[in-house]
Design a protein around this nucleic acid. Sequence first.
RNA 1: GCUGGGUUAGCGAAGUGGUCAAACGUAGCGCGCUGUAAACGCGAUGGCCUUGUGCCUUCGGGGGUUCGAAUCCCUCACCCAGCA
Length: 395
Amino acid sequence: MQYKVRKTLPDSLARLGEVTTPSGKFNTPAFMPVGTQGAVKTLSPWELEELDAEIILGNTYHLHIRPGEELINNGGGLQKWSSWNKPILTDSGGYQAYSLGATRQNSAKTTDEGVKFSSHIDGKKLFFTPESVLDIQHKLGSDIAMVLDDCPPIETDKARVAIGVKRTSDWAKRSMDYWQKQNYAFSKNSNETRALFGIIQGGVHEDLRKVSLEAIQSLPFDGIAIGGVAIESEGKEKINFAVDSIAQLLDKNRPHYLMGVGEPEDLIRMVHLGMDMFDCVIPTRFARHGAFWLKDGYKRVSIENSKYRDDFGPLDPDCSCKICKNFSRSYLRHLYVSGETFALRALSYHNLALILGLMQEIRESIESGQFTNKYQRYLVHLKYGREEGRHSARS
RNA sequence: GCUGGGUUAGCGAAGUGGUCAAACGUAGCGCGCUGUAAACGCGAUGGCCUUGUGCCUUCGGGGGUUCGAAUCCCUCACCCAGCA
């Protein structure tokens, strides 16, 4: 994998970049739609291309339990098998240890050795280690693999978070050793190498975040991810703080991936803090729950609202996606309320169009140097933005 | 016209003397969802407020029995079925 910084700004950590993987290039800042089980829910690969998605996610845990990495490997790898011929990043299963274990009882348990899971499908016992998770991702054929991390709920006590940081560091070391020993970076389909990203933990504790950052960054990972910020948070302040506290310490020669974020305002703020890659289930999940964003103010509204019953105007008057060009709120509301699948597809399409369109606009504004001006109203709560961004912007 | 069945919250539908402001479903309403066990979950839903083991008004209309009626009786209206 290669990462090239194409442009930086004087008044922001935002930067323009390009990542090259065995399956091709993508521009950063990038939003990666989430395709947990091998598909971005309700959408086809060509729709995603049409929407300007350049890289999508897959998930180690889900694809391992069904249908299994062997099958996908036999199918030619995840890209070929799913007919998505662009880059894929695979998440490691670290998040599932959290979502299946930390917040529920008995489905997952983390120890220093790894994570014990009970499959949510049939209860079968599984055991993930930093090494086994790389084996799986290698067989899936992922362009960017993630290390297994220990991701405790953000609200847990600091002692537990500290354990998570230590464990994640140990696992990162094991992961890198194993990655190199197995020569997993090598790709037989391309001259370009596959990538492995490390993950920083530390919850909302600045000191722990810094400890974690140092441990992860000292290893030769292709990219640096920040994990554990978009879960169980009581508000955006926690996301802001967790990233803000280490934003300026991140190695500028590697891409920065903020895991699990986010909503439109989050993306703007986090780009400002130097984040290059994002993923989030929210655009597609909101869609399936009847919610869509308006470009104006990035307000979230519900299609179920009865005031849209007789609203024959477009879903979002400021959006030029195919859905907004062709269908009225009235019609889409009817479909949603009637349980028609197309409503879920339509809203997913629009929400992703909005998010990916935002990313495009963000990239253009960095290119033109207008990023901080254009998005100033979203940046006011940030430490970085307050002390340097706005000051520099005026000078 | 006769006989039988029915009429309960926006709709559907339980309840057949007190524990009923009335189960449940649905519609409508509100809220939530950020590395997807998520086309999901939660909440309120007769009115009022001082939000309480609070007050007021309800179970087709009217009348009655009873300490007490959505529940029993009479009557009227309407609906359904069968017979004429």
